[in-house]
C-alpha cells in the first residue's frame, strides 16, 4: 500500500514551498493555459524556445502541492533541452506518473523528477501532476502550428 511519504517526498515538498521559475516570462515564444476541472486549479506555462532549444520555462498559477511541485520540477528539468529531448522527457514523466515505467533505465535520466514517482500510487492525484506537463506540451505543439502557418 502506498504511504503518504511516497507521495509527499522531500523534494516535492520543497518545490511546493519554494516553486522555482515562478512568474510570467515576458520574452516567451510559447504560452498555454491549463485547467483541472476536477479541482479548479489553473496553471500557465511560458516557454522561450530558440533554434529548437528551450532557453527558459516559467509557470504561474495555484494548485495543490503535487501540481505546484510537478510544474516547478518541470521548469528545472526542461531548461536547455532540445524539443526532441522535451518530447522524450514528456513521455517518460507520463509513464512515471501513470505507473507505466518498467525499470530504472526508464527514469535514470529524469533526475529530481523521480520525486514524482510516488504519485502513481494515488490515481486520483495523477491529474494534478500531469496538468503542468500537458499544458507545456500544448504550448509547444499549438505554437508550432501557428509558426508553421506564417
Amino acid at each position: 500500500m502506498s504511504d503518504l511519504g511516497e507521495l509527499y517526498q522531500e523534494v516535492l515538498l520543497d518545490h511546493n514551498r519554494r516553486p522555482r521559475n515562478f512568474g510570467a516570462l515576458e520574452e516567451a515564444s510559447h504560452v498555454a493555459h491549463g485547467h483541472n476541472p476536477l479541482c479548479g486549479d489553473k496553471l500557465t506555462v511560458y516557454l522561450k524556445v530558440r533554434n529548437g532549444v528551450v532557453e527558459g520555462v516559467n509557470f504561474t498559477g495555484s494548485g495543490c502541492a503535487v501540481s505546484q511541485a510537478s510544474a516547478s520540477l518541470m521548469t528545472e528539468g526542461l531548461k536547455g533541452k532540445s524539443i526532441d529531448q522535451v518530447e522524450a522527457m514528456f513521455t517518460k514523466v507520463h509513464n512515471l506518473l501513470t505507473g507505466k515505467s518498467t525499470g530504472a533505465e526508464d527514469t535514470e535520466d529524469l533526475g529530481k523528477l523521480r520525486a514524482l514517482s510516488g504519485i502513481s500510487g494515488f490515481p486520483i492525484r495523477v491529474k494534478c501532476a500531469t496538468l503542468a506537463w500537458h499544458t507545456m506540451h500544448a504550448a509547444l505543439t499549438e505554437a508550432a502550428d501557428e509558426i508553421s502557418t506564417e
Binding site: 504511504d3 503518504l4 509527499y8 495543490c64 502541492a65 503535487v66 492525484r125 494534478c128
Partner: peptide
C-alpha cells in the same frame, strides 16, 4: 498554505 486536495489526501490516511 495547504491546498484542500492535500488536506483530503492526508485525512484519508
Amino acid at each position: 498554505g495547504i491546498h484542500p486536495h492535500d488536506i483530503g489526501t492526508i485525512l484519508d490516511f
